[in-house]
Amino acid sequence: MTKISHNKKPLRLSTVVDHAILVIGALVMLFPVYLALTTTSHDNITLSREGLKFGFGDQMGVNFYTAMFEKGGFTEQIDGTKMLINSLILGIGFAIGKIVLSMAAAYAIVYFRLRFATFAFWIIFTTILLPLEVRILPSYEVVTGLGMANTYAGLIVPLLASATGTFFFRQFFLSVPEELVEAARIDGAGPGKFFIDILVPLSRTMIAAIFIIMFVYGWNQYLWPTLITTDESLFTLVRGIKQITQSVYEGNTIPEYGQAWALAIIAMLPPVLIVIFFQSWFVKGLVESEK
């Protein structure tokens, strides 16, 4: 990024205003999550009696421990650790499934002489037109009919029925110079060798970028897991939020704010950390995949 050099006057009013706006923006983004963090550090009785705290208490360890390792708080049979594992299975399973399926399909469409390539292209790309949400009820019936309700496969596979990844990899493969596959063919590489030796290593950044996008997308799924997993042992953290809110807001006892927010924090943490630490890949993946 090259910037036009600015005047080096020490303090200009407009610069101060610019920074003020950005700082306020950043604080607005942070504030709710900060409050959620402080909430996890107090015990429930204090919170109910004295209202929300802006400072940290000493109950954070207890609350996280209870949320992660004790069953029967919000749900009957599952603790936070199991939900975390389920979330990881969904996030990673979805991301890997998406990458494998869409790379394979894009490879076939771009690198093979295939009579029905255009037809396959349209069959796949029509799926961009209709998000899962608009066909949610029949999808539920189909998956249940196949006996896939309350299975990991039923959780993950139907989410894979969309073309975003394929479109992304197709664009990328098309941008790879034609001569590369030609050089490889002269070097004696067949389709399998070319894919593994050349194309996959070349796509590493793209794969990383799409992995991050898809992991976050999978991890954050809510509606579909809510429908298709009624067995608590398959609950993800995000799916569990519903149970948690219900017990906080619809129960009669003292709301268990501390544990509830400990779980919610765990539900936010992995995707947020990934997005922050792999920021450049993430931004690349997002901006490129939506093109």
Binding site: L101, Y111, E141, V142, L160
Partner: peptide, 30 residues
């Protein structure tokens, strides 16, 4: 398609099949 595309007939079908099956079952059917 690349101009020097591979001409193996079965491989691309095998590559496309998983995606097509999933889309058929979980998109077109519903």
């Amino acid at each position: 398609m690349k101009r020097a595309a591979f001409s193996q007939p079965l491989m691309p079908v095998a590559l496309l099949l998983p995606q097509l099956v999933i889309i058929a079952v979980f998109f077109y059917w519903p």
